[in-house]
Design a protein around this nucleic acid. Structure first.
Lengths: 195, 195
DNA sequence: TATTATAGCTAAAGCTTATTAGCCTGTCAA
DNA sequence: TTGACAGGCTAATAAGCTTTAGCTATAATA
């Protein structure tokens, strides 16, 4: 891991924790193990670090939501659908990098148009499109009732996104949040799955 | 409006726009029309202003979600339910004070436990409880199918909350967001209302 | 009327912050 | 071997920040 990458990594950690304005370049440097002025050998300034992080968030978005990996093997039963969906949600909740990006975006979403756009893609369009495809595939397999897949994907994901956001700010409720999410998914299956 | 109130008002406006750390006491003072040191005749410091704002957000929560005003006259038809729900949502979206509190909370939710708690109440529990009661009442009237009202309320409100958040950061999409919300509510009625 | 409190002001302290200038060392290529 | 460069360092600058001290005028009160 190069120093440049280490800077980005620690900067993201700190921005996620204390926000961009709440984080000093000195703090970042200290975590990296160098002195603040040395940062300027790698980046033009604090804002340059921010922009690099935005680029990374954008790339991460493509990588995670853009791939069609999740389509390779569609769930073939109600229980399998619930299981893989819960697995994906728990992964999203706990993966350190995704967590940091999520917290970072939530706090900085109003800083500029690009951040606003990425936040919407992460929070709405990304998950929505991903599940729309899965649900569409499962409709063709006769597992879901025929309906607008995009609309159903929204019904499924909106609550999950909100509950994950709650877990981010109040980790002490994680247990019950996870249960709420599973309850919601089961309810979703009750309503939209073919018996 | 006293100076103290004016300070709180302008502080909230600025915190909502640029965040707490992104706002200087000098800016607040300037908006109020006084010099920065004069602020200290009214508040012990910047953090004292923040705490007063948190108190206000808490009070505003009670006032808006705690009241049972919305229960006095329950909608008596599908179209009336859609109409009053859309009205309430549009009000929530546009009311300047509620908007500011929403933006403020979103950005500062990680600053301390109290802010995290209030954010959850505003974003989840408040709306959810309010609609749970409305839906429960309408179930008794035979308008909704019998089900768990809290669960249905979640299905209804989660998407609305997410879409309002999107409108906050990307007001240029307000038109389509409003349409999405109405579409979602109609879908909700299709699924859960008695014909 | 005398006095006291309120609420503004200027000046400035004192700290933090981002950034720059300039130096030093080790590495690698000519 | 020499020279260039990458990447670290210290010292310092310059600006910004919050907050305090102390002055003044007005309004309320005894």
């Amino acid at each position: 891991m190069t120093t440049k990458d280490k800077i980005l990594d620690e900067a993201l950690t700190l921005f996620a924790k204390n926000g961009y304005d709440g984080t000093g370049v000195e703090q970042i440097a200290e975590k990296v193990g160098i002195k603040a002025p040395s940062l300027y050998k790698h980046f033009k300034g604090k804002e340059d670090i921010l922009n690099a992080l935005i680029d990374n968030s954008e790339a991460r978005y493509e990588e995670y939501f853009g791939s069609e990996q999740h389509l390779r093997k569609l769930p073939e039963s109600r229980e399998e659908f619930i299981r893989v969906t819960m697995e994906r949600i728990l992964f999203t909740m706990h993966d350190p990098m995704i967590r940091k990006i999520r917290r970072f975006l939530v706090q900085e979403q109003f800083r500029n148009d690009r951040l606003a756009d990425i936040t919407t893609r992460h929070q709405l369009e990304g998950v929505q499109k991903m599940y729309a495809k899965i649900i569409e595939g499962m409709m063709e397999m006769g597992l879901f009732v025929k309906d607008n897949p995009a609309l159903l994907a929204n019904e499924l994901t909106a609550q999950v996104v909100l509950l994950i956001a709650k877990a981010d700010r109040q980790p002490q409720y994680e247990q019950e949040i996870t249960e709420s999410i599973e309850r919601h998914i089961r309810h979703f299956c009750d309503v939209y799955m073919r018996v």
